[in-house]
């Protein structure tokens, strides 16, 4: 026997599983998943990012998706973060650990993790 409270609990639990179908969130995190990306380890990065976005409850706001070759294979795995009215941020040489930090600090906190960006890598 379901009460209204139980019903609401089901709704809240299931909500995340259907939000993906209502279009894109305000932030798009795109993982390069061409041959170069996959070879460099983009798959675990993508998995870590998806997991972390779910864990932090950001599914309404953040869409994690994949794309083909971004064109700078030596920096793969690459994650790019798009947000309306903001400059695109390109993170390079990603690992699952770095991806988790980006999810927490950038996607949730709104603060770019400068040290992982392409700018930091080129200036190093």
């Amino acid at each position: 026997m379901k009460t209204l409270a139980e019903l609401q609990a089901i709704r809240d639990r299931m909500k995340d599983s259907v939000t993906m179908r209502s279009g894109t969130g305000e932030i798009r995190a795109v993982v390069g998943m061409a041959t170069c990306g996959i070879a460099a380890g983009a798959r675990p990065v993508l998995a870590a990012l998806v997991e972390e976005v779910n864990r932090l409850g950001l599914t309404d706001k953040v869409t994690v998706t994949q794309t083909g070759c971004i064109g700078i294979c030596r920096y793969e795995p690459i994650v790019e973060v798009y947000q309306a009215d903001k400059e695109k941020v390109t993170y390079v040489k990603m690992t699952p650990e770095k991806a988790r930090r980006i999810a927490e600090e950038h996607l949730q906190g709104g603060k770019v993790v400068e040290e992982y960006t392409i700018g930091a890598a080129e200036n190093a």
């Binding site: 209204l4 019903l7 609401q8 089901i10 709704r11 299931m14 909500k15 599983s17 259907v18 179908r21 209502s22």
Partner: peptide, 25 residues
């Protein structure tokens, strides 16, 4: 075209049965 019609949980996730709950209570 959005939910699986054979899964009541997906209907509930889209606010299904909330109207009934409100009406009854």
């Amino acid at each position: 075209g959005v939910i699986n019609p054979e899964n009541i949980d997906e209907y509930i996730a889209r606010d299904g049965y909330m109207a009934l709950g409100k009406v009854l209570t």
